[in-house]
Structures are given as structure tokens and as C-alpha cells.
Write a protein that binds this DNA or RNA. Structure first.
Lengths: 255, 255
DNA sequence: CGAAGCATTGACCCTATTCAATTTTGGTGG
DNA sequence: CCACCAAAATTGAATAGGGTCAATGCTTCG
């Protein structure tokens, strides 16, 4: 019945209105096949065939990819309410893996959810699309981070993003939110070494910007952190009515 | 009528069979609104509202994102046959820009192509999905590159990818293919400085692996280059019958 | 033919890595 | 409840990969 926890609903509603009937339908679907899994195991694996759509109801997970020599890049952080593998079955195999960080509660949905949503619950179809677009935008922002930002900036950007995303899902309490990455995992996310992650975090702490302990992140000075990160939350909002920042020069007005 | 150039068709067919009727339909649609545009202008801009679907019929383009202070990251290289903004109108605004590198020929398609394809030309719908999945996989591979590979490895990986993608579309002649990025653009793609791009390229040339001049890339020793790049082309083939490399340890067999 | 953009080179420097050791934390069993 | 162990965090010192700055040569194209 009530498979969708409140923050999952908050997250989805962030993309637009959802009818009660739609929410009930989705909630019912999600409740039919729920998996509870322990921390730090692979949920889906690089090379496997693709599968159904998943909703992460509770806990944190990651998407990652490994090079043949064992180096690992974390590609996304999946938070409660995040959806993955929408329409994944259209591909034949996974190019990456998904793993739990904490214990997780996972709804495994039928592969025809999208088709049913399309015909019967258009508001749900739209929410699924939005989630997919935002995920892609986050991926692009991370690429930009890895390519252009310094280590300090990347760290600040990631903290801003995770805080902002959790705020949108009503997962924060004041300036504090959960934070379930170890320093080694932070390193694999930010393309740096664990040692340097440690030093960077200490700098940010020493400067009074953040606190990070007991799997809790507290942001003491969000404006300064955002400025340091060159953080423009526009990419998290491309599916809301208002867009990002405009920073352009010339234009093909032909189009 | 024959708006789809042969290599565009080759590329799409790479994802699976396409009926003649479907190809005719798509070709006809594409021919209705074709834009020919000069090199190095923005086609779509960060902050703009979203628009219709596009097929790049001819020429090279890039997807890029800028930080507020002007640093630029190139996120994708769009080659002839590449499709972008499938379903883009579901989002409200662009978080990135698209620009031409060479002169380009661009088909601008109606936003309901996907819907029509779904009902009348399912094989086309599948091809569109496949293109989207492969684009996402490429994006993930690039993130992995930026985070984990050294400068040399990143360079080698990019060259392997562009050569392989062009080969799939029958755009190569033997060991040679087109290459329309300046060293500065390579730098913006690989997250390094133009100076170091130059030095890295010279190393690869000196070692007899490649040649790069007159907008032409020649790969003299593909196996060595692939090995240096840790290149596993699986991510380009997730929509074909055969998957990537398996490199796993333990598994949540619960699922 | 001139100018602007692109490629190339050298010298110096700094950000982030490497390696290695130590401390702290968290979880487990006795 | 404490002892123990493994994983995570922290610290220091040395170093390398890649960045910065600045100058020069080479193309391309109007």
C-alpha cells in the first residue's frame, strides 16, 4: 500500500503535480516487489543483462564503473526517491554497476510501468522523464567538475549538490543532512586520492564552512561553500518552471 | 526524400534492423526541415528553453557546459548520424549548449516523432532509444576517463572512441578518419591544458602510435593504443547482442 | 600580405599523488 | 563491558604529473 515513503513522494512532486490516483497506482506497484538489502553489495553488475526499473525507497547507493585494471569511478550517488534503469531493458547489457552504500530498500517495478503510465497515468510518465533528465544533467555537471574544477571546488560542489538534493526531498534538518560516503568513496567520486580528500575536507572544516562526522554533513556557511564550488543549482531544476543562469555570447538565430 | 546520408543509415542500422518503410518515413521527416550552418557557432544554448529533436546529418558538433567564470567543459562529440535532444522538450531548459565545429547539416524534427514512431514505426522508436542509451554510456565512460585515467590514457581513449564510432558508421578509410578538434578543444574535452595536449600528442606520435594532421587522424597501431587507453569498446555496444567485459567479484544473488 | 588563430617549445612551479606509518572508530565476540 | 580486530581517518615527507607563463613559428584565409 504505502510503499512510497514521504520523501520519495516529495521528490517526485518536485517535478510537477501528481494526481492522487496516480500516486496510489505507483505506490501499489512499488509495494509488490520490495527488496531489503544490506550495505555495500552490488545490486546490478557491469556486464549483466539489463532489467526492470527500480526506485530506491530508502538508503544510499552508487552507480560505478571499473576499468580493467581495477580503478573505480563512482558515477552517481543515488538518494532515497531516486529512480534508476527507467527503460533500461532497451539496452542489452549494463556498462556499469550499482551498489548499496547503506542498507537499502528497493522497489523493483515491472518493465512495462512506463508503457502503462504513458496510457493511463501521464503525470507519472512525465515525472519519470523528468527524473531521467535530471539524472543526465547531474552526470554532465559531474563531468564538468572532473574536467574543470580543482579538488577543493569539486569537493565543495559535491557537498552542495548532495545537500541541495536532500533538501528538495525534505531529507535535511536545518543545515544538517545524512552523508554516507567514506573518504575513499569520496575519492573515487571526485577523481582524487583518499589522502587528498582528507586534507581537502580538513581545509573546509578549518575554514568553518562545514562539519562532517558520524555520517552527518553540516554546512555552516552555505553561501561561501556555493561560491567556492561555483555552484549553480540550475542543473537540478531543468524540469521546474524556471531555468538556470544565462552566460552566452553569440547565437545561431537562424534556428 | 533522401535526407539520410548513407553513414547516418549505417549508424542507425547498427542498433538493429529497420524496415524500408520506416527508413523512408524517417528520411522524409528529416528532409522537411534541414538547416545548413557554418562552423563554430552555437546551435542551442545553456539557459534556453528546450526544443525539438535533431539529427546531425553531416559535420561535427559538440555539447559543452560552462562554469560561471568561463571555464568550459566539452561533454560530447557529436558525429554524423548522432541524434540529440530526443525528448528534450520534456525538460524546461537547457543545462548545456550545443555548438558546431565544422559546417553542419542538421535535420530538425517534430517533437512528436517519438510518439508517432512508437505507434507506427516501432523499429525506429527502438533505434532512438538505443542512440540515447549509447550516448549516456559514452558520457559515463568519459566521466570514468576524467576521474581515473591519466592524461595519456585519456587522450588514447578518446582517439580510440572517435575512431571506433566513425568506423561503425563507415566513416573511416582504413586506419584514417576525420578529426575536427583543435588542440584547445581537445584540452577542454580531456580536462587538461592545450600545452599538455600538445606534448601528449607528440609523445603518441613519437611512439609511432598515431598521426594527426590536416584534420585527419591516422592510427598506426590500434592494439597498442587500445591497451594504453584501457579501451573496452563494450560501452559502445550495449545495444547490440553482445555485452561488455565482465570484471566482477561478489553478487547480490537475492535479486 | 597581413592578422588572427593554432601549434610548438622551454623553464619554472604547484597541485595533487605516493608511500608509509600512526591513530581513531566501529563492530564483534567473549 | 571490555578486548580485539578491521576498516577508516589522519599525518608527514618526498615526488611526479601536469599547469602556468611567455615567446616563437606556422597556417589559413580574407
Amino acid at each position: 500500500m504505502c510503499a512510497l515513503t514521504p520523501h520519495v513522494t516529495y521528490k517526485l512532486r518536485g517535478f510537477g503535480p501528481m494526481e492522487c490516483a496516480s500516486e496510489d497506482w505507483l505506490s501499489d506497484l512499488a509495494s509488490r516487489n520490495i527488496r531489503t538489502l544490506p550495505p555495500r553489495i552490488d545490486l546490478l553488475r557491469q556486464g549483466d543483462g539489463t532489467g526492470p526499473m527500480h526506485i530506491l525507497l530508502d538508503g544510499w547507493a552508487i552507480r560505478y564503473k571499473m576499468l580493467v585494471d581495477g580503478r573505480r569511478q563512482i558515477l552517481s550517488i543515488l538518494l532515497p526517491g531516486d529512480i534508476f534503469d527507467i527503460n533500461g531493458f532497451m539496452a542489452k547489457s549494463m556498462d556499469h554497476s550499482i551498489a548499496s552504500l547503506t542498507g537499502v530498500k528497493l522497489a523493483v517495478l515491472d518493465k512495462d510501468v512506463l508503457a502503462t503510465a504513458r496510457s493511463d497515468y501521464p503525470d507519472v510518465e512525465k515525472l519519470l522523464w523528468c527524473d531521467m533528465h535530471v539524472s543526465a544533467a547531474i552526470q554532465r555537471e559531474w563531468s564538468t567538475s572532473l574536467g574543470q574544477r580543482t579538488a577543493r571546488e569539486r569537493m565543495a560542489q559535491l557537498l552542495c549538490e548532495l545537500y541541495t538534493r536532500q533538501t528538495s526531498s525534505h531529507l535535511c534538518e536545518g543545515q544538517a543532512c545524512a552523508f554516507h560516503l567514506t573518504q575513499t568513496e569520496l575519492a573515487e567520486t571526485l577523481g582524487m586520492t583518499p589522502v587528498y580528500v582528507n586534507r581537502t575536507l580538513q581545509d573546509l572544516r578549518r575554514e568553518g564552512l562545514i562539519q562532517l562526522e558520524n555520517r552527518t554533513l553540516t554546512i555552516h556557511d552555505l553561501p561561501s561553500l556555493e561560491q567556492l564550488a561555483l555552484f549553480d543549482p540550475g542543473y537540478l531544476r531543468i524540469c521546474e518552471s524556471d531555468g538556470g543562469t544565462d552566460l552566452n555570447k553569440e547565437r545561431a538565430d537562424v534556428l
